[in-house]
Design a protein around this nucleic acid. Sequence first.
DNA 1: ACCTGAACACCGTTCAAGT
DNA 2: ACCTGAACACCGTTCAAGT
Lengths: 195, 195
Amino acid sequence: MPTPARTSVPEIVAAGRAILESDGLDGLTMQRVAEMVGVRSPSLYKRVRGRTDLIRLIAESVVDELAATMDTAAGDPDPVNALRTIAHAFRSFALAHPNAYALLFARHPDDVRIDPERNARASESLLRTAGRLAGPDDALEAARTVTAWAHGFVTMELAGAFQLGGDVDRAFDYGIDHLAAALSPTVVRRGTGSP
Amino acid sequence: MPTPARTSVPEIVAAGRAILESDGLDGLTMQRVAEMVGVRSPSLYKRVRGRTDLIRLIAESVVDELAATMDTAAGDPDPVNALRTIAHAFRSFALAHPNAYALLFARHPDDVRIDPERNARASESLLRTAGRLAGPDDALEAARTVTAWAHGFVTMELAGAFQLGGDVDRAFDYGIDHLAAALSPTVVRRGTGSP
DNA sequence: ACCTGAACACCGTTCAAGT
DNA sequence: ACCTGAACACCGTTCAAGT
């Protein structure tokens, strides 16, 4: 005798996301998710492969959300201003959703990797802005440099790694300004040795 | 009747580190550590407060090891070359010990924070090099920019986030060269708007 | 003083049995 | 077709009992 479904994948992902944000990854248990959507934990396995699969689904929803945030931030016609706005949007998102953000660059096992196409879409607007700044040949390298810096910065900030005092907001702006200057083609200095 | 100790904190930390490196943080269980040092898992609680405490001890040993590696790399008299060498040493360490490295900037609960003095000691040589490059006033900001970039880069590399092709080694050198140029005082561009 | 078996309160996951 | 209780193989941690 068929039975109507009592929950759904989107509902499960939303519940998992909510638990993740409030209690961290360790607090994200199948039993708490099940309780939140109103079933027993074994029933979840009809919709997701398991806990790691659920984490992947949550991570993908976070990627999409961050991508949307950065897209709206990339509107400024001046590439330096656009870079600044994107970087600030990136940081704001990370600080507002630290546990969700931590999923983005986590080392997941190969079989639960985030969909590569999603990641590509998420880096699109930054890649375009970096290209306007550094030129088309260096767009990829420039975008990687900015992303690496921004991710490293907020990760260290969230980890409490800035323990030597100083103004963290000022350090962030210092980083953007110097990166923007460094990525414009005229200031490139290559090779070894001092200038 | 007194009994001679059958293990020690250093032995437990070493075993935990070995298990962490081979099997990741999830594989680091108290039972596996106990088995490796030759006791039953309850005995470990005579030496460490618990699993999170053990993880903190391991993380601190990793900090010390990375600090030593970077100290030896900071010898070059030319600050740009020193920065390059430090950055490469940093990346090599991360790629050689990915699971251990992941502990460094992880968000630990407050009661298991890594000893701040240890972290300060670890960033000393980079701070000095950054000061030689950017000047004493901007040493802290410059060091944070470099650390953030380097950490973000290797984290993304380890996470498999560089999916858009291109030469990752080249991207790393691109980043160092541009950062070194950007941090020297002459190329600073502040304020808003385009140049 | 140190070590341990037993126990407790959890996990994720599977599966036969229910409707 | 979906849901569930029961079960299995794990966890971390505590503690009384052993030596």
